[in-house]
Design a protein around this nucleic acid. Structure first.
Length: 335
DNA sequence: GAAATTTGACCTTC
DNA sequence: GAAGGTCAAATTTC
């Protein structure tokens, strides 16, 4: 990444990003030391878990610092929305005092949107519904073929204020016992991740939990904000979360309440382009194809069976590969 | 009364 | 044409 060519006003962002990545590098070194001694892993599993999560959190923080929303502190203009380009005339007509006949015509043109079939997504399966720290607004519900349960559609509450394109889908799985499949699409650009979650570790069977983290690459599309999105996750089910219909996607206090890095934070909003740019330390193909890595040592209190995007060209890599991966990314990104 | 949810219709993709 | 994602009016909740 050509940081030197960045505008001067962005230098502070660069410095912040470097600071975060430096922390990550230190943690990665420590983690590597731990991984070199399998016996230590056995006895200090929680430390390993915490370190991995912290590293991922640092990525999250860095990407948030480097995200376009931080560079462009300009109030959101709805006309920037990809759909608005084609719909502006529609909205104009709706706002005017056109005839009913015109309105009828307008209504037939609603829904000028692009389906994000190929945008990267993250899917996880949890046994409990969790508050991921973002404010969501339900906008739809659909019966899905070959599925007993309806799928619920949520968009970021700040979609219109800040143009945040993040959406998620929640569907109860048919399995027994039922779990919830949550699919995150798009990138949160709203900067409204308010509160670090309280992670409650299920000490009883930590080995049962697994995490697959997707670094899926995707081409830049018209909605190039779309990216992988590992949201903050709160593992304490709130009251009333027992059924899909009862889920409250409520706004949480202020953005200033980011937790210190000792709080476990998920990797969120990994845009593909920076990842591609960071891949010089390893063979690019290796980087891209290593679209995900798994961890059987997740400290998350919920069950994550999978986090996946599109299935093409991805493979699981070992934990040590993942560490190497993080290390390289950190060192490359630093420059 | 404002905000959130529900729900049928519309639109895109496959 | 079917399936799934989104819109937006109607309805409900706070």
């Amino acid at each position: 990444m050509e940081f030197s060519s960045w505008p001067e006003s962005l230098q502070s962002h660069r410095m912040k990003a470097i600071q975060e990545l430096t922390k990550g590098q230190i943690l990665t070194d420590k983690l590597r030391e731990l991984l070199d001694e399998p016996a230590k892993i056995e006895t200090d599993l929680m430390s390993v878990n915490g370190m991995v999560e912290q590293i991922l959190g640092l990525f999250d923080s860095t990407l948030s610092i480097l995200s376009p929303s931080n560079f462009n502190k300009i109030p959101y203009n709805p006309t920037w929305d990809i759909r608005s380009t084609n719909c502006q005339n529609v909205h104009k007509a709706e706002n005017s005092s056109e005839s009913i006949k015109t309105k009828a015509l307008v209504r037939t043109k609603r829904g000028c949107y692009k389906r994000r079939k190929h945008a990267s997504s993250v899917t996880k399966v949890t046994s409990t519904l969790i508050d991921d720290g973002y404010a969501w607004r339900k906008y739809g519900q659909k019966v899905i073929q070959n599925s007993k349960h309806q799928r619920n559609y949520y968009r970021c509450s700040h979609k219109f204020e800040q143009g945040c394109q993040a959406t998620k889908q929640v569907q109860k799985t048919d399995g027994e016992p039922s779990k919830y499949r949550i699919t995150y699409n798009g990138l949160h650009t709203c900067n409204n991740l308010q509160m670090a979650p309280q992670i409650i570790v299920e000490a009883s069977k930590p080995m049962d939990n697994s995490t697959l983290i997707s670094f899926e690459s995707h081409t830049l599309r018209e909605d190039n904000k779309a990216g992988n999105c590992f949201s903050l996750m709160q593992c304490t089910p709130k009251e009333g979360f027992s059924t899909l219909g009862d889920v409250k996607h409520k706004q949480v206090s202020s953005y200033d309440h980011h937790a210190p890095w000792d709080v476990i934070v998920g990797l969120s909003q990994v845009p593909s382009e920076p990842m591609s740019m960071m891949s010089s330390g390893l063979d690019r193909e290796e980087m891209v194809s290593s679209g995900e890595f798994s961890s059987k040592y997740s400290t998350h209190g919920y069950d994550i069976d999978e986090i996946s995007g599109e299935d093409e060209g991805r493979q699981s890599i070992t934990r040590s590969q993942a560490v190497k991966y993080l290390q390289v990314r950190l060192s490359v990104f630093r420059y």
